[in-house]
Structures are given as C-alpha cells and as structure tokens.
Write a protein that binds this DNA or RNA. Structure first.
Lengths: 214, 214
DNA sequence: TAGATTGTTAATCGATTAACAATC
DNA sequence: TAGATTGTTAATCGATTAACAATC
C-alpha cells in the first residue's frame, strides 16, 4: 500500500508506466475488461509475480480465477502517479527543442499543462510558437507566482541552465525537467529530473561496439 | 575486466557516463591530473567502493596513496563505450523534434555521426534543415547500405514508428533510437533504445503528488 | 467440486556497502 | 617508516523469483 511519504523508486515507476501504456492501448482496442498478471507479464516481458507485487503495492486487488479489472489497474496507476491532478508547467528556452516541446500534445493525458514559454533573448519576445507567445525572463517570477506554476521545463543551452534554474526555483517552481547536459544545484525540496541524451548515445554506442554477439 | 560479450547493464553504464561527464569537465578546468575514488564518489553522490569497483570492471588501475589518473579513467570509459569509433546514423522524421536533432551538435564527441535526414512527406523532400536536405524514404535503403548506416534515430509520430522501423531494419540498421511513444517489434540482434518522455512526466507528477514531504 | 489465479511467505540472486589487507 | 589509498573479500541489503496456501 502506498502511504503519503512512500518512495516509489525509478524502476517500479517505469514498470507502472509500462503497464499503463499497454493497458490503455488494450482498452482502446476494446479488449476484455479483465487481465491476469500472467497476461500483463507477457506483454511487458516480466515475471508474473512481480506484476502482482507491483499491483499489490499500489492497492489493486485481483480476483482469484479471474484476474484484475483493467480499469482498476489504470485508475490505481493514475491515482498514485497523480495524473488526474493538474500540474502547471512552463518551458524555458524557445530554441528548437523548446519549440518542439511547445507543440507537443502528449502532456495533457498525464495532467501536465504547459502555460507559457520563456526566453532570455529580447528579439524572441512576442514571437508566436504554437499557441504561445514567447515571454521575456523578466516576467517569469510574477507569472510563476500568479499562475501557480510548479514545473519548469528547461530547454536552454547547458551554459545557461544553472542561472535559469535559479530564477525558476526562487520564483517558486517545485520541479525542474532538465534537457541540458549539466548537473544543476538546487535547494533540497526541489526535484530535478535529468533527461540525459548522452546516456542514450552511450547505450547505442556500447551495444554497437560489443553487444551484438550477445 | 570487460570481455567481448560482456554485458554492462544500464545502471553501471549510466554511472560511467556520470564519471565521464564530471571528469571531462574537471579536465577542461585544468584540475589535478589524478583523482581519488573518494573525490569521484563525492562528485556523483555515491559510495567510493562502488567507484573503485566500476573502474576495476573497465580495467582502470589506480595508485595507492595517489588515486587514479583522470586520463586513464576517461580513456577507459571512451574505449569501453566505443566513443572513439565512429557510428553512422540517420534521422527519420523531419518534424520539429527531428529538426532539433538535425541541428544538435552533441553527437560527435561520442562518435555518432549523423549523415542524413529522411521524411515520408513528399513536400518535405529537398528542404534544407541545418546542414541536411530532407530525403524521401524511398532512398533510404540504398543510402543505409552505401554509407554503412548503423543507427536510425526515429522522430516520427507513434503511428508511423513501426513501419519506419521495419524499413530501417531491413535496410540493415543495427540500432534504433526511438523517440516515439510506442513499443517497436524488431528482430533479435537489433537494439531498440526507447527515450520514453512519459516516464519523465510520471516521475515529476509522482513527486509533486507525494514526494515533497520526503 | 476442481481448477485457475491471486496473495504472500520463503529462497535466491545480484548489487551495494563495509571491512581490511596489500601497496607504494 | 607511517599513512593514505587502492583492490578485494565478506557482509548486508534489496529486489526478483519460486513455491504454495488461500480463494472463489
């Protein structure tokens, strides 16, 4: 059972997302309303006991001889991960990646709502990017406070990342999603999630160097 | 010691990248030529024994009372991960994300060289994107074979991902770096690395829902 | 009921940490 | 030499898997 302060680690969290992805796909296709742990396990290439453990951990109960209701699983995952809350976000950095993010439609199903796009370059202020107009950094603190922004998505160059993060944090942002290749220093209580593209490169490169015979 | 078929798991690989990142940063700043395992450990918030284990595993030897030569570590990591080979890649999907990728400068230090950009939309053929001209999918198989392309970077919509992956694989690509939210089916022997943005969202959302008191 | 599947306890496995001898 | 740091063996910890009783 998940208590308030309970810490779901990265790996189980990733598994839950995996279950969620497959089950919501299945639901769309009008599959059966119940699944067994074995079915889920096969879907995601895992042991069925681990599936049951994960589901037990988030409070889903199954029915012997029947399995689990797919809806129960989806609901429990959405509850635990907070997808039915709405969290407000801003994107900082209106470069190519920031622009791609500003157009991305995939946040809303997970309850993340992007409210604004900021950039430090004066010549970008006012430009239209998707449904946003680029705002200057000077307006950020007020915007964050007034709109209750909790997440800053950083798509700035590595050299600017720390400075921008500082501004965002002192404005009251609670989590930073960093796409730059740096390590940010933030006060405790602020989450930094690093999207380290270089780890992806490393994995590909390592596999191509050694892994192919495996 | 790392043998030919040795399988470095995801976690150690991520740690090696972490060491690499810090040590190459340190080198640029003209820091000391040696580091102790304790220093590295502090840098990346880990136990010093684990650092020594990781380094031993990739064949780096240290000097009692002195530490490790930073260069030795960097070289060993680059060797093991294959950064000094050159792997040829193409980007498939010239949308906003593909465009951002096409402009990205960060691949070369890790030995990944992007050679071309492809898109299935006829009206995009010939467009200039950074140093590339968008090529039609029809030309992909020949291009992959002639240029020895090993990596396909997929920045296409989820609905197109499987089909595009099939084309790339049958053309001879050995690894797929997938930025779409799907699960690809590929023949064994082909690596798929998924860059699942939704796991990032999940982590942020989970933390904002529960984690803050921790 | 018999049988399939859950839920849970016990066993295993692997990864991390602690302890300490070897080394320079 | 004394002392700092490596390298490695042993202990611990946590996560995964196996076994099986409980349930419908």
């Amino acid at each position: 059972m998940i208590g308030k302060g309970m810490a779901l680690k990265h790996a189980p969290l990733e598994r839950l997302m995996h279950y969620h992805h497959f089950l919501s796909g299945r639901a769309k296709e009008g599959g059966s309303e119940t699944v067994t742990s074995t079915e889920v396990a096969e879907l995601v290439h895992m042991d069925d006991t681990l599936v049951r453990k994960d589901l037990a951990a988030i409070g889903v109960r199954g029915y012997p001889r029947v399995g689990f209701r797919a809806d129960d699983i989806l609901k429990a995952i959405r509850d635990v991960l907070g997808f039915d809350h709405t969290f407000r976000a801003i994107i900082i950095g209106a470069g190519r990646l920031g622009t791609a993010m500003a157009h991305y439609q995939g946040f809303t199903p997970f309850g993340v709502e992007v409210l604004g796009l900021f950039d430090s370059a004066p010549q970008k202020t006012g430009l239209s990017v998707g449904r946003f107009q680029v705002q200057p950094m000077a307006g950020l603190p007020l915007f964050v406070r007034n709109r209750g922004v909790e997440i800053a998505i950083l798509t700035v160059p590595a050299t600017a990342a720390q400075e921008v993060a500082n501004v965002a944090v002192s404005a009251g942002v609670k989590a930073i999603w960093d796409f730059a290749t740096t390590s940010l220093k933030v006060p405790s209580g602020v989450l930094v999630r690093h999207e380290h593209i270089s780890v992806g490169i490393a994995e590909l490169s390592y596999y191509l160097s050694h892994g192919q015979e495996a």
